[in-house]
Amino acid sequence: MARLNDDAQWIILMGFLISFSFFFLALIINQSTVVGQTTAESVIEFPKNDIRDLVGVITTNTSRSNTTVVNSDITVISLHRKNAVVRYSLIQPNPPVDLHSYASIHYNNGVTTYYENWTSL
């Protein structure tokens, strides 16, 4: 037998193949680990419920939220407890000329700035 037998080289080839596929799998996994987190965090980060709540309390009973006391309650507590700068003003209905009440509400927590001009139904 004068020649080197190379029948066995497919084994080493298989080894390489598996190694590479393994390597790429790992790369893909490394990329994917951070995906889900950002969705959850962005949901938490966006103060949808806070803004809804604020707009709700100001607009549901405009005669009660129109007083200066309530207005500064909301402004001061927002800043203390919710870290948000809030300012709003309300215009009460003027029957019979105008049956609607109007509000302009401004909210800013450093990340989200929200502004709404609201008109009652």
């Binding site: 298989m14 080894g15 393994f22 996994i29 994917s32 680990t33 995906v35 889900g36």
Partner: peptide, 29 residues
């Protein structure tokens, strides 16, 4: 020898996937 190494390596794959929970996150979203 090749097969033993291969099996050992395959056995490590689940461990690799431990950190991967994107599917539940996706369902939750």
């Amino acid at each position: 020898i090749f097969l033993l190494a291969f099996i050992w390596v395959i056995a490590m794959i689940p461990g690799l996937l431990i950190g991967l929970q994107a599917y539940t996150i996706d369902y939750d979203a």
